[in-house]
C-alpha cells in the first residue's frame, strides 16, 4: 500500500472538500463585504474633506489593497488651489495622501 493510499483512506475526499470550501467561502465573503462599504466610505470622507478644502469628487480616491496579512487603506487627495499647496515641498505640491495600514485579518 502506498503512502498516498494511506492518506486517501484516512481522510475521505469529501471532508477535504468541506474544509477547503469553509475557508474559501469565509474569505470571499469577507472581501466582498469590505468592497461593499468603499463607495460609502469615499462619500463620507469627501464630505469631511470638503468642509476644510475646496476639492471636488474627482480629486479624492480611496483604495483598499490586500495581501496575505495586511490591508492597506489608501486615501489620495489632489488639491487644486494654491492655498493648500503653499506649505508643501516642491515634489508634494498638488497632492496629499494618507495611508492607513491595518495588520492582521478580521
Amino acid at each position: 500500500m502506498s503512502l498516498l493510499d494511506y492518506f486517501k483512506r484516512s481522510k475521505p475526499s469529501a471532508s477535504i472538500a468541506r474544509e477547503r470550501l469553509q475557508i474559501l467561502v469565509a474569505h470571499e465573503r469577507a472581501s466582498i463585504t469590505q468592497a461593499a462599504y468603499l463607495p460609502q466610505l469615499k462619500q463620507e470622507l469627501l464630505a469631511v474633506i470638503q468642509k476644510y478644502f475646496n476639492v471636488n469628487e474627482e480629486s479624492v480616491s480611496v483604495n483598499l489593497e490586500q495581501d496575505d496579512n495586511n490591508e492597506i487603506l489608501e486615501l489620495n487627495v489632489v488639491f487644486p488651489d494654491e492655498e493648500a499647496n503653499k506649505n508643501q515641498p516642491e515634489e508634494r505640491k498638488g497632492k496629499y495622501n494618507a495611508r492607513v495600514n491595518r495588520t492582521g485579518r478580521r
Partner: peptide, 17 residues
C-alpha cells in the same frame, strides 16, 4: 457516494452556505 465519503453531504453544503 456520501456514505463512502466521496461526496459532500447535504449537511456539509447547508452548513457552508
Amino acid at each position: 457516494r456520501v456514505e463512502t465519503g466521496e461526496m459532500l453531504s447535504v449537511d456539509d453544503v447547508q452548513e457552508i452556505l
